[in-house]
Design a protein around this nucleic acid. Structure first.
Lengths: 132, 132
DNA sequence: CAAACATACAACTGATCGGTTGTACGTTGT
DNA sequence: ACAACGTACAACCGATCAGTTGTATGTTTG
């Protein structure tokens, strides 16, 4: 596995936070973190169609917060606690930015010297959609 | 201030994660956590209209991740690190659910005798939006 | 084998989202 | 006074979202 680019990290973050931004999905995640559940077992817990719940599970799976394994006709879903931790790390990085202004690091890197920034993904700095 | 209801906590979580689920908003949040910025200063950093950025700031403000103060004609935005921490706590609670099945605590309190083995998830017990 | 079960996905619909332009209003500088 | 600046909000538009129903396919079980 390669170091993820800034773009890939942002895509991942989009997927994580989008997945978490729905209370049904958060509830599903809580259940599958506490233990494996089949999709239909999960579906029975909510006042909506099976298809709706199945799509919520699919969103969680695509984001990486949940994994599925097949057992016969059932699909057993488990929460991926490592992914949850990664989201937490992302927030910790935000806090760090508040404490110490990490973003200054880029300027220090970029402004002089050979700039052998193997960690940094070239072009843009910490972020994304700048204009100039 | 009263204890927030489950409903209010979920509404808050919806707002937090929705606000974080957009990379422009995450970028804005990074900047205002690192230091105060006026809305138009922020707007100049992105390749979109002032109104678009202003709306992003408004979303962050409504979620509580950002606060604004007025100084003359400018609106100075600051990231609220306490809110960021609260989001982190919410994720930690998810992790805890994985580690120990917190929801069982009630039973342990009620039933006495620490006879816990692996305690697998039988029915559900966990949280909110059940059907029946 | 046939019926019931579990899953997956396509097609549709109303609601929300992320962007736009335009307008209105208070503040600042000349 | 007035022009430029900074902010806020309304109205609009295409895209995505969260739900629905329906259909197809594989897996148990009687």
């Amino acid at each position: 596995m390669n170091e993820p680019t800034t773009r890939e990290r942002e895509d991942q973050a989009d997927a994580w936070f989008h997945a978490l931004a729905d209370r049904t999905r958060r509830d599903i995640l809580r259940r599958v973190l506490a233990g494996e559940h089949s999709v239909s077992t999960l579906a029975r817990s909510y006042d909506m169609s099976f298809a709706a719940v199945q799509k919520h599970v699919a969103v969680l799976e695509r984001s990486g917060l949940l994994t599925k394994r097949r057992q016969g006709r059932e699909a057993l879903a488990s929460g991926d606690v490592e992914a949850v931790r990664s989201v937490g790390v992302m927030l910790t990085e935000l806090e760090a930015l508040w404490r110490g202004r990490i973003s200054r690091m880029d300027e220090l890197f970029a402004s002089d010297t050979g700039t052998d920034t193997d960690t940094q993904t070239s072009t843009d700095t910490t972020t994304s959609t700048q204009k100039d």
